[in-house]
Write a protein that binds this DNA or RNA. Sequence first.
DNA 1: AAAGGATAGTGTCGGACAAACACTTAGGCA
DNA 2: TGCCTAAGTGTTTGTCCGACACTATCCTTT
Lengths: 233, 233
Amino acid sequence: MQDTKRHAYAHARPALAVDCVVFGFDEDQLRVLLIQRDLPPFAGGWALPGGFVRIDETLDEAARRELHEETGVDRVYLEQLYTFGGVDRDPRERVVSVAYYALVKLSSHQVAAATDARDAAWFALDDLPPLAFDHADIIETAHRRLQGKLRYEPIGFELLPRKFALSQLQRLYEVVLEQPLDKRNFRKKVLSMDILDELDEVQKDVAHRAARLYRFDERRYRRAKKAGQEFQL
Amino acid sequence: MQDTKRHAYAHARPALAVDCVVFGFDEDQLRVLLIQRDLPPFAGGWALPGGFVRIDETLDEAARRELHEETGVDRVYLEQLYTFGGVDRDPRERVVSVAYYALVKLSSHQVAAATDARDAAWFALDDLPPLAFDHADIIETAHRRLQGKLRYEPIGFELLPRKFALSQLQRLYEVVLEQPLDKRNFRKKVLSMDILDELDEVQKDVAHRAARLYRFDERRYRRAKKAGQEFQL
DNA sequence: AAAGGATAGTGTCGGACAAACACTTAGGCA
DNA sequence: TGCCTAAGTGTTTGTCCGACACTATCCTTT
């Protein structure tokens, strides 16, 4: 409840920001998109893209706007993660931050778009630079959330090219979940979900037998989900 | 990232509040604790307990403080739920609210404590009065989260007396998950988790065969969880 | 004291799904 | 032509989940 009495007082208000943990998948590494700060505090240090919430935009809008402004990234899977409200997160003043995580297809042109705007760069999740504020905590929380989500919802496709081989998908799962998976069981499981289109196309420019390509069929997925189907592992 | 440049500008800031969805379990109903507003907007209407975040307290602290001030409820299971940032949530001004959900043991004296402070009352989840702001949305989100959480973490005990019968626990699961469960399978499953102490005590004042009482053993639970044990259903 | 009512408490079987496991095929490259 | 690398493919075994019905205990009523 927002109490009208206390509304009358002009209490000091925490500032409200959004921060985005942008995940990308690069062959066999999970990466995070960071930007380099040019001003104190943490000048020269790396931080998550983000910024203050404007008075006339929703939180989701703020997250997408900042993401676009600071990294050029656009039209991605985006979901609210957690709100970080530690009193001393920011040394200047009280800032509460609503954290989001995003999944992008590194294969698209987005890498280029990302790297020209400001000083943005992809870092391997297991080899991050020192981070500003509590952004290391936020990334850790995002990683755990991604692991949990991936186990029971097929969002892995958001990190792959539109057309992909099953082995790519498996590598993605192995990297994110940090555990090896059995090839035959994995294929059996994924194909049995019946949400992939088998294409009449195979990989190009590989130095070995080319793998068949598949495409995620979002329509079928939605229908199956509505019908109560599960998508574990 | 909190951008220092924009810090210089005195942008209009959204106000920041917390709201709490407090769940209680009453024999065979899931209930929510609401308070009655005495001032506009929505004067006389019902709303979630909550209020503005102070400049020197964390979000968790704010949630616990408001909960205590407005309902007398104290020392409960509390977890952040989601942050609601719709632009027109509050007709007076822009207010972003970090929602929490809490689980309380109705059996404790907390009911009494809750009902004396202000006009607080328990409502059955499936028979709520008209609610202020977007609080109906928040409660719905909290309910779904509770369902999801209960499926794979043993938090049901937070809603029951310290000593309880297995049938009570089962009814709780049935009510929250909105599906009937098989008695024998349920007992088998719960007991196999090995996180309950079987007490040398039975129910009193029941008009039929008295059931054996159990107690949740949090130490054992933590140890088992650390060892990687699952707690599904 | 007996009968009835209500809930407690208990075990088995069958089917489905998950986990373990190895060889053959295809294509590029030396 | 041979080799290297990854693709692709089934079966078996065990475990866990779900379905299912009767007896025991205690209190209440007559």
